[in-house]
Design a protein around this nucleic acid. Sequence first.
DNA 1: GTCTATACGAAGATAGAC
DNA 2: GTCTATCTTCGTATAGAC
Lengths: 195, 195
Amino acid sequence: MTSPQASARDRLVFAAADMLRRRGLNATSIREVAKHANAPLGSTYHYFPGGKNQMVAEAIAMAGAYVSQMLRTGLQAGIVEGIGEFFLFWREVVLQTDYRAGCPVLAVAVAEPESDLDRSLLESSAKVFDDWQTLLIGSMQMSGVGENQARQSAQLVIAATEGAIALCRATRSVEPLDNVATQLTQYLEIMLAKD
Amino acid sequence: MTSPQASARDRLVFAAADMLRRRGLNATSIREVAKHANAPLGSTYHYFPGGKNQMVAEAIAMAGAYVSQMLRTGLQAGIVEGIGEFFLFWREVVLQTDYRAGCPVLAVAVAEPESDLDRSLLESSAKVFDDWQTLLIGSMQMSGVGENQARQSAQLVIAATEGAIALCRATRSVEPLDNVATQLTQYLEIMLAKD
DNA sequence: GTCTATACGAAGATAGAC
DNA sequence: GTCTATCTTCGTATAGAC
């Protein structure tokens, strides 16, 4: 995902996102992030004076923006196609990591904040989910779906995808993502026909 | 969830499940589990010679069985009613913990196993999800849904619920669970009408 | 059988050398 | 500006006293 020539700061952000999606928030230590990014431990506090929280916040913002961009492009072909791309992306993630990685944003969302600083991390993850939801809502509305229905449907798509990713990891199979994709596609087509 | 009179072993299992659903697998230390259960640290290794892994495995099996029992009871009134109870249960969990707790099984499912021992924990979480899925499939089939369709629908319900729980925590709102419940109910009624 | 005391490593964070 | 060395706390696990 990053080239070794990228700046040390960028390498750290990418490494943090990778460790988050695999191990979760608490098991992601800045020590190991630094090691994976080939940077000394002290450097992390130079680049991220806010410590681990700042590094994690940037990591999920980066990952979230990457997925948003992918989603935006996919949705240009239509809502069903865009969601198909969304599923395909996560399918590749779990397959290419042999079911070891999931979604870094979910990893942050399921950790209890222990301080007010941690609470802002939760908000960062909520913002990413909200970005994705906004893109989906916009596309559904373009297809003639009402605002309320679009909001609920978008939330269902995101919730089902995140849950399916976790199920894939637990079962070491892509079947959950594939099944959920199939069912959601049926659901979407019925919903689109209702307009 | 437990009375102080319960055996020390039971208190430890309950405390472990509670910490798992709040903090995740890695942030659940046997030190704090023991503290919450009013048991000395050394006792944990007396009751659970397999260490943290054994304690966690028992915690999610216990939590999984509890939810299975609730689901089994709810499904006696029908598939829609049973799923409604399922959502209500998780809604209460997030509300009563002020959005600090989620599903302990998901917490285990999203952690990368670092050893073969950890891998068995993943399998324990997969087994719980499979138990829930089996109950849902059985109920759907009783309502006349075909096996393949039932399997996919059950997986969608579980994935969407788990994802919605996480979204609720991130957004500090029960709206995701409520929206997903509404949409899934619509989806189920259409599916049931198709037989 | 239960628990205290402790070993040992790794965590987040920083001070200060280069 | 970059990084080494170190402080303190907390992690898992165990040895051995009661």
